[in-house]
Computed example of a mutant assay.
Amino acid sequence: MIYKFRVILDAEEDVFRDIAIQEDATLEDLHNAIVNGFGFDGLEVASFYTCDDTWNQEDEIPMFDAGDVPGENRIMSDYQLSDILDEENTKIIYVYDFINMWTFLVELAAVEEVQTGVTYPDLLFSHGEMPAEAMEKHFIAEDDEEAYNEFEDDLDEDDLDAFGTDDSFEDYGFEENWN
């Protein structure tokens, strides 16, 4: 079977690509198809994220295993598309280049039969031009004041003594004006 995806750039202007790819292809294969479809050079790190029906980010699926124990974490090449996407679970998030945070909403639009004579992955449709820069992201904690108060309440006198009240750096073995 063939999975047909609409890959939408999170931007003010409409920019998306429709991509057809085999259901047994890996997330790494989909990553490469997205990179090619949007004209990236492919030199940056990327991750997929599972999400719910309203695009709330859940588990990360990275390109590389950065865990303490090699092989401990599953990566893009470990997942076939059919492992995590089907007619019930149609959405994933893709982030390319963690400096610029190019963010894409990837939705499974159709599952169809293989067409003879077509090489997959296949860029079916391209709409919109890539902007010069990724949209600025604003990361906001749900309730900053409440989180800070909880942190402060968890500190005891020993913790506060460790911070000290003197602005002097003499106790740390280096001078305040070291350069």
Rank of each mutant, 00 (worst) to 15 (best):
E13H: 13
D97W: 03
A162N: 12
Y49D: 09
I92V: 15
L105Q: 12
R6N: 09
D52V: 04
E113V: 06
R74P: 01
L27W: 09
Q22M: 07
T50H: 06
A109T: 14
D78S: 12
L123C: 06
I61M: 11
T116F: 03
P131M: 06
L81H: 06
L9R: 07
H138G: 01
I19N: 05
D158R: 15
A162F: 13
P70V: 02
G117W: 06
W102I: 01
G173H: 01
L108A: 06
I2E: 07
F104I: 00
A20D: 13
E60Q: 13
E12P: 08
D154K: 12
W102Y: 08
I92R: 04
E87N: 14
L124P: 01
E58Y: 05
D24T: 12
T116K: 13
P70A: 08
E12Y: 11
G128H: 09
E157T: 14
D68L: 12
D86R: 10
W178K: 01
E23F: 03
W55N: 10
D167W: 05
H31D: 13
G117C: 06
K137E: 10
E129A: 12
D167V: 02
F125S: 07
K4H: 04
E88D: 14
E129Y: 03
T50G: 10
F38M: 03
V114I: 13
L27H: 10
D10R: 15
T119Y: 04
E12I: 07
A147C: 03
E44W: 09
G39C: 08
P121H: 03
I8G: 01
L85D: 02
D14E: 15
A147W: 10
E72F: 15
Y94W: 10
N89K: 14
D159A: 12
D10F: 05
W55L: 10
D10L: 09
E142R: 13
E112S: 10
A25Y: 07
R74D: 07
T116A: 11
R74G: 05
F151Y: 15
D166R: 02
V69T: 15
E170N: 00
D159T: 06
Y120H: 09
F38G: 04
D143R: 10
A20R: 03
A25Q: 09
L43M: 12
L123F: 02
E112K: 14
E23N: 15
L27A: 04
V15R: 09
E129L: 08
H138Y: 10
F40M: 05
N56H: 09
I61L: 11
T54Y: 07
G39Y: 10
F98P: 13
Y79R: 10
H138D: 08
T103H: 11
I61R: 01
L108D: 07
R17G: 02
Y79D: 11
W55C: 04
I34V: 13
M130V: 04
V69A: 08
F40K: 08
E170G: 00
R17C: 03
